[in-house]
Design a protein around this nucleic acid. Structure first.
Lengths: 79, 79
DNA sequence: AATTTATAGCGTTGCCCCCGCTGTTTAATT
DNA sequence: AATTAAACAGCGGGGGCAACGCTATAAATT
C-alpha cells in the first residue's frame, strides 16, 4: 500500500507540511480565522484549510498572496 | 486590450518574473544548461525555459526540487 | 450551542509533459 | 572567410491531471 518515496520526494512532502504549519501559525498570530483570511485574500476557505494541512502543492502565486496578506516574506537564499 | 491589474496582481507578476531570473542566474552559476538541469531534475527542458521566463506559476513542489538540485534554500522569513 | 476547521465530491482552470520548430551563438571544418 | 554543424534557448500547441473553486456536511474546539 505504501509506495516507497525517493529522498527528493520525501523532502518535497516534508516541505509541504512544514509550509502548511507555518501558514497556520502566522495566520493565528495575526488573529485571523480561516474564513476571515479567505475573505481578505479573496480565495476559498476550504482552500486555506487544505493548504494548511498539506493536501496539495500550492503555486508560487498563492505563496506570494499569503506573504502579502500575512505580511510575511518568502525568500530564495543561499544555503 | 490591457487589463488593469490590482496591486496584488502586480506583486504576484513581479515575483514570478524575479523568481525566474533568480533560477536562471543560479543555474548558470552552477554551470548547467537548461537541458542538463532538466535531465538532472528529471523534468522537461521546455518547462525550465518557461519557468525562467515566468510563463506560469510553478508549484512549491517544483520550487523545492529546484532548491535541492541547485543547492539553494527557499525560506519563509519575517519581514 | 456556537464557532471554527476538516473533508468530500464535483467542476473548471491551468500547470506541466511532450514534441517540434525557429533563431541565435559558438565551434569545427574546408 | 565562408559554410556547416552543433549547442542552447524561446515559443507554440495538444493533452493529462492536479490545483483550486464551490457547496455541503461532519468533526472538533471553545
Amino acid at each position: 500500500m505504501n509506495a516507497e518515496l525517493t529522498a527528493t520526494e520525501n523532502q518535497i512532502k516534508d516541505y509541504r507540511l512544514k509550509l502548511g504549519d507555518k501558514i497556520r501559525i502566522v495566520r493565528e498570530q495575526r488573529g485571523y480565522s480561516q474564513e476571515q483570511l479567505a475573505e481578505l485574500m479573496n480565495i476559498n476557505r476550504s482552500t486555506i484549510s487544505k493548504i494548511e494541512n498539506g493536501k496539495f502543492s500550492i503555486t508560487v502565486d498563492y505563496l506570494v498572496r499569503f506573504s502579502i496578506f500575512l505580511d510575511y516574506e518568502f525568500k530564495v537564499v543561499e544555503k
